[in-house]
Amino acid sequence: MSFDFSAAFVYWPELLNGAINSIRIVALAVVIGFVLGMLLAIAHRSGNRLIRGVVHVYVEIFRTTPALLQLMYVYLVLPAVAGINLGPITAAWITLGLNTAAFFSEILKAGFQSVERTQYNAAFVLRLNKVDTFRFVVFPQLIRNIFPPTVALFITVIKYSSLAAGIGALELTRVAQLIAVQSFRLVEILTVVAIIYFVIAYPLAILARAYEARLRRGMY
């Protein structure tokens, strides 16, 4: 069989539109995920038993159920039960945002735990106040510790965004699916789309690697 990649180029406006929708889903999901994740982590750290329990349940629900099912819940169950109707793209970034928040709060939690108790003691006996201790001692170490898993999470969100195809959101994967079927150029279209995902995510992977290499050299 012969491949004709020109099919992918013929459909470039549709693909571009799909890519833009994907980026929109990812960008909004990441913003929601990082902000809400931070709030969850702070709530978990400072909150009482009840608050910690709520955060825990939230996190575990999102961690233990399939993301596609989460999407279906928000897109299909919410209108039926609560009468809230969301478009598929809106449903996608909201759901992925909530999902990302759960994972990001866990990353932050581990990050805080990885700054050793002894560092707080050292700062304390130097009589640094709480704000300075956080700003100059804890925060820089926290950033260092959460950076690699956060980049990995970002890449995961990019990949998860393709699940929105499952609820009919016209993002990159869904568009590719439609075009592929219509044009009978399955291999070409899907290959081009895979490359697009790769091109978007790979720089992040490189960034994570470069940072880890830097850490190995004992630098920050």
Partner: peptide, 27 residues
């Protein structure tokens, strides 16, 4: 009151000089 610990507890993200100057500057 100054204290030194068994496990040193230097701040790993700061240079030796920065470790020493942090508290005098901030406190």
């Amino acid at each position: 009151i100054g204290m030194v610990f068994q496990s040193f507890n230097l701040f790993p993200h700061l240079t030796v000089l920065q470790n020493i100057t942090l508290a005098p500057r901030r406190v």
